[in-house]
Amino acid sequence: MKFSQVLLTASLFIPLSSLVVAAEPQQDVAQLLQDKIVVGEKEWVTVLDTDQRTIAKIDTGATTSSINAIDIHDFEKDGKDMVSFKIKAKDDVSKELTLPVKRWVHIKQSSSPETSRRPIVELDIKLGDKTYTTPFNLVDRDHMINAILIGRSFLDPIALVDVEQKYIHKKKK
């Protein structure tokens, strides 16, 4: 990919204020780009809490990442919101996980006027050779093609998206 294409793509996802060189002259656009990974439209990821490996769709239109969760039960423990759930990727269902709820969100689907209340939990995922902790909202995505949707809360600090590519971070056996 040409540098100009990368720069154009980067400018779509990096706030202009972070591209302006002000306080530190040695920090330039090339350095900002060098610190980011490039991901394609779809990537192989592993959910480390379950060792499930599946294809995630990269979605710059989604604020928060989503994961296909089933048997979702929220409860309170020692005054903290908790949630238990299983992750389903194709026909593979994980063991039950119990995690603290980081926050609750109300999501409005474009296909419905109603909102749904979803818990946000943090999960460790592996993309390529690196591990990242990122927030996911738990939702039944069985009707969707991909069990995992990676949104801007994951992408913004670490990645650039090349929509012409898929599986840049190949499946590792």
Rank of each mutant, 00 (worst) to 15 (best):
K2L: 13
S4D: 14
L7T: 13
L8Q: 14
T9D: 12
A10V: 05
A10L: 04
S11P: 00
L12V: 04
I14E: 02
I14F: 05
P15F: 04
L16V: 07
S17I: 10
S18Q: 15
L19A: 05
L19T: 05
A23F: 15
E24M: 04
Q26T: 15
Q27F: 11
Q27Y: 14
D28I: 02
V29N: 06
A30P: 05
Q31P: 00
Q31W: 09
Q34I: 01
D35W: 10
D35H: 14
K36V: 05
V39P: 00
E43D: 02
V45C: 11
V45I: 15
T50H: 05
D51S: 13
D51Q: 14
R53K: 14
T54V: 12
T54A: 02
I55C: 04
A56W: 07
K57P: 08
K57E: 13
T60I: 15
G61F: 10
A62Y: 07
I67N: 06
N68D: 14
N68G: 11
A69I: 03
I70V: 15
I70L: 13
H73Q: 14
E76K: 13
K77S: 15
K77F: 09
D78F: 13
G79Y: 09
D81Q: 10
V83P: 13
S84W: 03
S84I: 05
S84R: 12
F85N: 01
K86Y: 03
K86D: 04
D91M: 08
D91C: 07
D92V: 14
K95T: 08
L97P: 03
T98I: 10
P100R: 02
R103M: 07
V105W: 02
V105E: 06
I107E: 03
S112A: 07
E114R: 13
S116H: 11
S116G: 09
P119T: 00
V121S: 03
L123C: 03
D124F: 08
L127F: 00
G128L: 01
K130G: 06
T131R: 11
T131K: 10
Y132E: 04
Y132G: 00
T134R: 05
P135H: 00
P135D: 06
N137A: 10
L138H: 10
D142T: 13
I145A: 12
I145W: 03
N146K: 04
N146D: 13
A147K: 02
R152D: 04
S153C: 11
I158P: 00
A159V: 09
A159T: 05
L160V: 07
L160A: 04
L160M: 12
V161P: 06
D162T: 04
V163W: 02
V163G: 06
Q165H: 03
K166P: 00
Y167S: 06
Y167R: 03
H169A: 00
H169V: 00
K171V: 04
K171L: 15
K172S: 14
